[in-house]
């Protein structure tokens, strides 16, 4: 039976295994995208921070209009900065996931080689 199991494992490793790995990797990217709500942040990139802001008052009062305009500009700017930070953090995590995933894929694909090599190298390092 050990030979059957080993053979089945090898077939899986370079068939279903790669597909499963790719799915898991994609799921993690999907999760990071979703958890930071990146599409929503981008869609509302210039919206005021936390809906703060003022409504324009009735009548023509240039000073009041200018003041409201300024306040709304500031809240929009704050909103944009906070969103930009969050999107940047999200992209950073995506990069980690991408690089880490690719690295692990290499290890995963070469597992039948990497595992014995790691053990042998370790023994050699200890002896030398």
């Amino acid at each position: 039976m050990p030979a059957v199991v080993f053979f089945e494992y090898l077939v899986w490793q370079y068939g279903d295994g790669i597909r499963e790995y790719a799915n898991a990797w994609l799921n993690i990217h999907w999760f990071l995208w979703r958890v930071f709500s990146v599409p929503l942040l981008l869609r509302t990139f210039f919206a005021p921070f936390r809906r703060t802001g003022e409504h324009y008052k009735r009548g023509f009062d240039p000073a009041a209009i200018a003041q409201t305009f300024l306040i709304n500009m500031i809240t929009r700017f704050v909103g944009m900065v906070v969103r930009a930070v969050l999107v940047a953090v999200a992209l950073l995590f995506q990069t980690f996931a991408l690089v880490g995933g690719a690295l692990l894929l290499v290890f995963f694909m070469t597992a039948p080689l990497v595992i014995p090599i790691s053990v042998l190298t370790g023994i050699v390092v200890m002896i030398v």
């Binding site: 799921n27 936390r50 809906r51 703060t52 969103r83």
Partner: peptide, 14 residues
């Protein structure tokens, strides 16, 4: 993974 709460969206609301 879909059961984890999201947090970016809270910025949108008051």
């Amino acid at each position: 993974l879909g059961r984890m709460p999201t947090f970016g969206a809270s910025l949108l609301f008051g």
